[in-house]
Design a protein around this nucleic acid. Structure first.
Lengths: 246, 246
DNA sequence: GGGCCGGTTCAGAGGGTCCTGAGAAGTTCA
DNA sequence: TGAACTTCTCAGGACCCTCTGAACCGGCCC
């Protein structure tokens, strides 16, 4: 089976070909970061910088999903959405939008099951939302297990945003939740603080790696408190989450 | 079984094929939003912008239901209705009409089992009405369970518009009812304020997400008052309804 | 041992999210 | 027409989340 840089099997559609995503943003840097992260996750990625070329690219690529900036130089996102749906009716769309534009043009978007993320976002957020869209659309075979992540007796339900350990409910803040999700999606793999910062914190975060240590300590208090620890420090390298008994 | 983007099983007719609906409206944005919401609910959707193409599309699609704007650029909705019935006698029709439209004529039509919604409507309203029509027509297998929604000891009878908790009747305003219905149709799933706004409030509502918080607080006062809470806030994410003990 | 380094933890400021009460405008119904 | 109800805006305030700064801890090397 084809594998990706992340070590996970490539995401494939029911017919075995890789999942395709089109990234549309007029900021080339951001488009690059996004497509890098998605490629890493096993997507076949293509980018476009404006509405016209987005529709053209979609006609060629016939993507399963589109990551679409609402503010584009030529057209507005809603028009692009309509064109995309005429190109491929069952395409999933994830919108990127500025914080204060939310109420405006996003109206009606999520009604179709599409979703949106506000800038500045974290890559983990984008990747997770996209996964959610595809899973609900029944597109990717690998996602069939559903919205559940498990490490030992620690269980995360992404849809319900619920985390339990040994059946006991654990309350987490948004950042704690994202950090834990990132760890749990990469069990038994050492993640550096830089990696964590890049994925869990938003791309324009200027802070230092110290926050990662801080949030790891928060997580430990809630997740590992008084129990066999799942979260481990690897000095000089980063952190891992792994079950106690392999 | 085939599933939809909403995670619910696809709506199917007695013979196993998906339910088909034709959306007829001359406003392409509205048609797009409507068809998105219906597709998400498991319908096979097709749209038309005027009476002539509506009849043509119906002849091809042979829809189980039609969502029909009364005001069309070429013909009026009632003429279309007659044509539709010659194409497929047992089709269910949901009319979309302006608030001050001639109510008598609508009522004459709906006597036949069809229904109508006045603009501006909420998507939740349209989706629910359509469900009701199909259920009464005995079309969809999945709807056989009837009009009852249950979360813990909270019970909603959609047809009677009645809500009880622990047997005790709870009086709700229209908006409160729709909000609660949307929550109860998605138990244990965190719904963002944007999602709620898109589905429960009418499509032309310009207000801010703040109203959602307000109505959640109203609901809590009536539904959760002095009892074990069913409605939960997930900070930074949205709201969930779920029974205390799973 | 002393200094250094990576990591952990505590305390607290500031900012944001969310809740709620009060009240204005619009709607329904008698 | 007036009263009751519904819907929504506004503003105050409580609480939580996030991040900074600084102290602390233990291992490692000189």
């Amino acid at each position: 089976m084809n594998t990706t840089r992340s070590g996970r099997p490539a995401l494939t559609r029911p017919d075995g070909t890789p999942l395709r995503v089109l990234v549309v943003d007029d900021d080339p840097d951001l488009a690059e970061v996004l497509s890098g992260a998605l490629r890493y996750e096993g997507w076949q990625v293509r980018t476009a910088g404006d509405g016209a070329s987005a529709v053209a690219a979609a006609r060629e690529l016939l993507p399963d999903a589109v990551v679409l900036d609402v503010m584009l130089p030529d057209t507005d996102g809603f028009a692009v959405l309509r064109s995309l749906h005429t190109v491929k009716a069952d395409v999933c769309v994830l919108f990127l939008t500025a914080r204060d534009a939310v109420e405006d043009r996003i109206k009606g978007i999520t009604a179709g099951g599409d979703d949106y993320v506000t800038k500045p976002f974290s890559l983990e957020e984008v990747v997770a939302r996209l996964r959610g869209l595809l899973r609900r659309a029944g597109m990717a075979r690998q996602l069939d297990e559903g919205p559940r992540l498990t490490v030992g007796d620690l269980v995360m339900d992404e849809d319900a945003r619920e985390v339990t350990r040994g059946g006991e409910l654990i309350e987490l803040s948004p950042t704690e939740f994202e950090l834990l999700r990132f760890l749990m999606r990469n069990p038994r793999r050492v993640l550096s603080k830089a990696q964590i910062l890049d994925r869990v914190w938003s791309y324009d975060f200027g802070g230092r790696a110290h926050v990662v240590e801080l949030y790891i300590s928060y997580l430990r208090k809630k997740v590992d408190a008084g129990r066999e620890p799942l979260i481990h420090t690897v000095r000089g390298a980063g952190y891992v989450i792994k079950p106690v008994t392999p």
